[in-house]
Design a protein around this nucleic acid. Structure first.
Length: 925
RNA sequence: GCCCAGAUGGCGGAAUUGGUAGACGCGUCAGACUCAAAAUCUGAUAUCCGCAAGGGUGUGCAGGUUCGAUUCCUGUUCUGGGCACCA
């Protein structure tokens, strides 16, 4: 009987389905393990071989944990709201709901063929009303919450109202408007709209204004990378910055906890670093500079507030730079500078934020105004420049050219004088950002080392009331609304300018079906084109929709209790399954998705809905599988194609060839001619009778014709081979190329495994005989290795371990049931179909999926002697087998008796003999 | 510019704590079986010198620490990723 993988895989996929083998439920008797994949966006292109890499790894881990006795939750779903479906709808007039449904079907079929152990009864789809009902519900909880900085947790708005009515806001400064300060009587005297406006500045989900890239011609908002040189990438229309009403999540209130939480989770160091860089906590001071209005006494109400991490350099300030959007800018522009600044402001408005930040050229304009140095009273010129962004810090910086390189270039470019506060540490041509220089020209800081001057400076700044010590974050609040259709509608109506939450009983607010997805008027989304839907008795509906990360911020909770209609997830379910024990996904979500879901988890924890405040205990990032493109070389202006080795003698153009027409690098020229009509008459210049293609590693993408569909691989070699081969390619975390060539080796391994059990003509050849010590040794060495390698995610070495064991057992002629059974159980997580089939063939009626992972019988692995490598001065020269318990004298005499050693010693005694037990022996001459 | 990761045969990669560099697989070469092919099996395969025994070199590059370095340290080049006039 031969290894008929197609039959076997179809058979067992069917049986597992019928038996509901992968359904899990809460079982307090067993330890739980939650293994999660980042769920995919179901794109129209379907899966390619890069997608399943992480899925296979987590599947192996899940199955392994199940053998180890864990109750494993391993679900899958779809992140099915998103822009591509909307774009597709606009181009092809197919509603997003329809194309999404279709794509999910394709994905599901592709996933099923690979034999994953997902509990599909728990599938979630973010675009399903039964799911987004709870996304809307969580939004309402965030809307109804504020962050109590003293208690460091989210609390209800009703509690805030009581506090404000008793004490005003003295203990709870307003995060959305820090200068807001009022006592209880003021609060009580406010009318409702004023109170609501104040509350909005506290809410965790709030409505505010933000600048977006607005393209008038397209009538919509563009992402940063859709804007190139001030025009839209699509169509080249002008793009300007426009202020629009937007929803936000006040994630900045959680900045410290997000930072601290990193210490409690098992993420890679680089991942943690990316997150903390994104959060960007810095310590410094806010300092106010009074504006000097020409000819008038200074006006304390007009101040420019800057944030600096280097208050020690305060005496080196030679100019101020404001963001062009800074609210004081219009009032600072003097008559003489009107023309210049206006031209500059207009130019800046066409620049995207990304361009402004990436720009190396120095630009700016002088406003004509000055402010006063708070300690020296020296007038400091106020400039505007695009490199200062309104959203960061206070939107204004103090320019210290001798200590900051960018400021130095600014001063040099505009010919501004440079004050030296560094003494010899400043060379006059280059800024020195040191903290170790001794300050000069710095008033009360003179003679101090800068590092020590920082505190001193802040103390004086606070004592003289010109500023405050402050912690600042680079991270900004998350924009939470999109002017799009295919997303969750907000459960909000607008009533006389006040945002009113809709009652829970009205959820879900269904996304209405809409044929024409053109943008609405005034920068609003397509839903604005549905006045009948938007207008309700309570007021006008919010017509923005939620962003892509809304649904994905909490989906891991829904899997625990997917059908619950009373709650997003019953507390009993989240108390049982708790954190995700293992989360696998790509690094591209490092700062977006992972930070948002961490914040949502913390907020839900604060409000008492779940019992943990970090969603993912351990995170593993799978690498990307790159496409291995094949390239043909066409001699310019002809239909002649020249083989890669000869191409340098010609002037050629590169043509990407579909990888399915190439075997290794050898092109199937007939298939190539038939590929496209224009290649029908192609001629080939061959080398050694073959046409060799060039190759290049690049992104796996349709346009490079290098996409490999897992379906094709599974069809040809089977799912078990595919699974093991993806793992065999290299470490999961590493990026790697896809090369189908090597798959034969893995397939051969499975056939070889099969032949340990089956003979092509005789059928089963398994015997009941007791395995020899050597056979047990091979098996237990494997079992130990697989246990260790699987636990530490070293799947590639695990696969090689299986190959070694099967080679050994083949060589030993081992067909003994007792030994082979253990091999099968260890292999099940990797190649479940063939293992289940062979398990059944051994006469078992139960499933291999629930067998216990074999334990290691150490006695078969005990070694008594060791073939020691003998090194002379660190270079291996010989080998001597010695008992492991040999004493030093025995070892030394054995070593010195060795002929090779004697040759190197040349009669002289060795300086030293180093013996590392069970490792090696080194002789120093 | 800053931060992170990486660089090992013709190729993917292995070497878990500083201890036999190149496991395992692919490819290539030689052989067996066969009328032949496929499949399968056996052997060789870092590189240089050498008939061989043996020896030299070798984990991007240059140094260092050590009896011993792919592994640790310093510097440097290149590749990939992230962040970016972040005040």
């Amino acid at each position: 009987m031969e290894y008929r993988f197609r039959e076997i895989e179809e058979k067992w996929q069917g049986r597992w389905e019928t038996r509901q083998s992968y359904r899990v439920s809460q079982d307090p008797a067993r330890p739980k393990c939650y293994v999660l994949d980042m769920f995919p966006y179901p794109s129209g292109a379907g899966l390619h071989v890069g997608h399943p890499l992480g899925y296979i790894a987590s599947d192996i881990y899940s199955r392994f944990k199940r053998l180890k006795g864990y109750n494993v939750l391993h679900p899958m779903g779809f992140d099915s709201f998103g822009l591509p479906a909307e774009q597709y709808a606009i181009e092809h007039s197919i509603p997003p709901a329809v194309s999404t449904e279709h794509n999910i079907k394709t994905f599901r079929a592709q996933l099923d063929r690979i034999g994953f152990c997902y509990d599909w009864s728990r599938e979630v789809r973010t675009s399903d009303p039964s799911y987004y009902r709870w996304t809307q519900w969580i939004f309402l909880q965030l809307f109804d919450s504020w962050y109590d900085r003293n208690r460091r947790q989210a609390r209800r708005i009703s509690e805030l109202k009581s506090i404000l009515a008793i004490d005003g806001n003295k203990d709870h400064p307003c995060p959305g408007n820090p200068s807001l300060s009022f006592d209880a009587s003021v609060w009580t005297a406010m009318n409702e709209p004023s109170q609501e406006e104040v509350l909005m500045h506290y809410r965790l989900a709030y409505c505010g204004y933000g600048e977006v890239n607005w393209c008038e011609a397209l009538g919509c908002v563009l992402a940063n990378d859709e804007v190139v040189n001030g025009v839209s990438e699509r169509g080249g229309h002008p793009v300007v910055r426009k202020r629009l009403r937007q929803w936000y999540l006040r994630i900045t209130e959680y900045a410290d906890r997000l930072l601290e939480g990193l210490a409690t989770v098992d993420f890679s160091e680089s991942m943690k670093e990316m997150q903390s860089n994104w959060i960007g906590r810095s310590q410094g001071a806010e300092i106010d500079f009074e504006v000097q209005t020409a000819g008038k006494p200074s006006d304390p109400r007009r101040r420019i507030r800057v944030y600096t991490t280097r208050p020690d350099t305060l005496f080196g300030v030679d100019f101020m730079v404001l963001a062009p959007e800074h609210e004081l800018v219009p009032s600072l522009i003097t008559a003489g500078q009107q023309t210049e600044t206006e031209a500059y402001l207009e130019w800046v408005s066409s620049r995207s934020e990304r361009e402004r930040m990436a720009e190396k050229r120095i630009t700016g304009a002088f406003t004509g105004s000055y402010c006063l140095h708070p300690f020296t009273g020296k007038p400091v010129p106020i400039w505007i420049s695009e490199y200062v962004l309104a959203g960061y810090g206070t939107g204004a910086i103090m320019g210290v050219p001798c200590g900051d390189e960018r400021d130095h270039r600014f001063a040099t470019h505009f010919g501004l004088p440079i004050t030296n506060i560094l003494g010899e540490a400043y060379n006059g041509t280059e800024a020195n950002p040191t903290k170790d220089a001794v300050l000069v020209n710095s008033g009360f800081l003179d003679g101090l080392v800068m590092r020590d001057a920082i505190d001193k400076a802040v103390d004086r700044i606070e004592a003289t009331s010109i500023g405050l010590r402050r912690v600042n974050y680079r991270m900004r609040d998350a924009a939470y609304s999109r002017q799009r259709y295919w997303g969750e509608p907000f459960p909000i109506v607008w009533q006389d300018g006040i945002a009113r939450p809709l009652p829970e009983c009205e959820l879900p607010i269904l996304l209405p079906s809409l044929d024409d997805l053109r943008p609405g008027p005034d920068g609003e989304g397509p839903l604005a084109n549905l006045p009948d839907w938007a207008s309700t008795p309570q007021g006008t509906r919010e017509v923005n929709t939620m962003p892509g990360f809304a649904g994905s911020s909490w989906y891991f909770l829904r899997y625990m209790d997917p059908a619950n209609e009373q709650a997003f997830c019953a507390r009993s379910a989240s108390d049982y399954w708790r954190q995700v024990d293992l989360y696998i996904g790509g690094t591209e979500h490092a700062v977006g998705h992972l930070l948002y879901s961490r914040m949502w988890t913390k907020a839900l924890f604060d409000l008492g809905y779940i019992g943990f405040d970090e969603p993912f205990k351990r995170l593993v990032n799978q690498g990307k599988i790159g496409g291995d493109s094949r390239i043909a070389y066409r001699i310019r202006g002809t239909q002649q194609f020249v083989s890669a080795g000869l191409k340098d003698s010609y002037e050629t153009d590169e043509i990407h060839v579909d990888v399915t027409m190439v075997d290794g690098v050898e092109l199937d020229t007939a298939a190539f001619r038939g590929w496209r009509p224009d290649l029908h008459n192609a001629e080939f210049i061959l080398e050694d009778g073959k046409y060799r293609c060039g190759s290049r590693l690049e992104k796996m993408s349709k346009r490079y014709y290098n996409v490999v569909n897992p379906d094709d691989v599974v069809e040809r070699y089977g799912a078990d081979t595919f699974r093991m081969y993806e793992m065999f390619l290299g470490p999961v975390e590493q990026d790697k190329p896809w090369d189908t060539k090597g798959i034969e080796g893995v397939h051969r391994f499975l056939k070889k495994l099969w032949r340990l059990f089956m003979d092509e003509t005789k059928g089963s050849i398994v015997t009941e005989a007791a395995p020899s010590d050597a056979e047990w040794k091979a098996v237990y060495r494997l079992v130990r290795r697989i246990g260790e390698d699987t636990e530490r995610f070293s799947f590639n070495t695990a696969v090689s371990g299986f190959m070694i064991a099967v080679n050994e057992l083949t060589e030993l002629g081992c067909h003994k049931k007792q030994a082979l059974e253990k091999l099968l159980v260890a292999l099940t997580p990797y190649a479940p179909h063939v293992c289940e089939e062979l398990w059944e063939a051994l006469g078992h009626t139960d499933s291999i999926l629930d067998q216990p992972f074999p334990s290691v019988e150490e006695r078969y692995l005990v070694e008594t002697s060791k073939a020691y490598p003998i090194a002379i001065n660190g270079k291996t020269r010989s080998e001597i087998t010695l008992p492991l318990d040999a004493d030093r004298t025995t070892i030394e005499s054995a070593v010195l008796a060795d002929l090779v050693v004697q040759k190197w010693l040349e009669g002289k005694p060795p300086k030293k003999i180093i013996h590392v037990p069970n490792r090696m022996i080194n002789i120093v001459l």
